[in-house]
Amino acid sequence: MKKQYIDEPVKGIKKLFIPLIIIYRMFLDFIADKLYSLEVKIHQAYRKRFPEKRTLIKKKRKKELIFFICLVAYPVLQFLVFYVFVNINSILLSFKKFDTETATYFYVGLENFKNFLRDITQDYGMITAVKNSVKLYLATVLIALPLNLVFSFFLYKKVPGANSFRTVLFLPQIISSLVISLMFRYFVENALASIIGVNLLQNKSSGFNTIIFFCIWASFGTQILMYTNAMSKISKELVEVGQLEGMSLFQEFWHVTLPSIYPTIVVFLVAGVASLFTHQAGLYNFYGPSARQDLQTLGYIFFVKIVRNNDAAFAQYPYASAAGLLFTVVAATITLTVKHLLEKYGPRED
């Protein structure tokens, strides 16, 4: 039977495009036919190579297996390509050095590791970065975490205006981080400076503290969202029983809410350990590659080392790779220790 490519009446100027529409639909059919033939040929070849056998897995189970493989394939591939392969290159680089005359890398053994260990203990710029990174981590644990928990709790308890409050807090998360950094910078350096007479970012004594404030403020929304989400899963019956027994708001927070969401807190704290070495505190958004030395963190220093658009960047890859490897070793140790301690000594739901 001859196929109709135009199956409905065409009126007006559309008639001009009839030949084009026919060609397009013929082309689609052609592709579909070719794909189908290919599929059939592959199937036939497969069956020839692997004749069908009776199997114990039922048809339904087989389909589930295929679905599972499809589901897992993507993350596995991603892990192999973007973690295993990329890091193999990075690990190899950490034992090499860049020769500027031939623009090639050659092996130098442990030299990069030695240089990094020397720098981190003797170089004042690096020591400042270590101090800043630790300060930033402690601030997120000692200041941001309690604030997040308290705010989340009040939102969870649906204080008046909770929803609008949540929106306002979450706003920085839906705007580009670059825009947020710029806004903050302009606010502090122009508006606020003209009101209080001090440029908090420019001032050496307040510069890094202002950056810490920015980091806490900018990540506030995400954390609150996570904590309120965790709190919403707390058994209502449990809370009601407590309330019937005269439990105060503070007691509810301390004895019910905190133990119930403790696993979520642990996740944030443990994941935060790695940020000791990687958090660049939004400095690149603020200052590009030329942030003041007193503001720099370890994450920023190493990011700038390799991202800089100059001749030195390629020569810095091996050193940065060696540092990265050492950071991984230290971060993994601290992470596991912290996780162990938090799980052992933290509050329990029971």
Binding site: K97, F98, T100, E101, G125, D311, A312, A315, Q316, Y319
Partner: peptide, 17 residues
């Protein structure tokens, strides 16, 4: 202009510093 390769290889020591 860097006549000496140390300017590239030791950029964190000899670069802008």
């Amino acid at each position: 202009l860097y006549y000496h390769k140390a300017f590239v290889e030791q950029a964190s020591f000899l670069g802008s510093k």
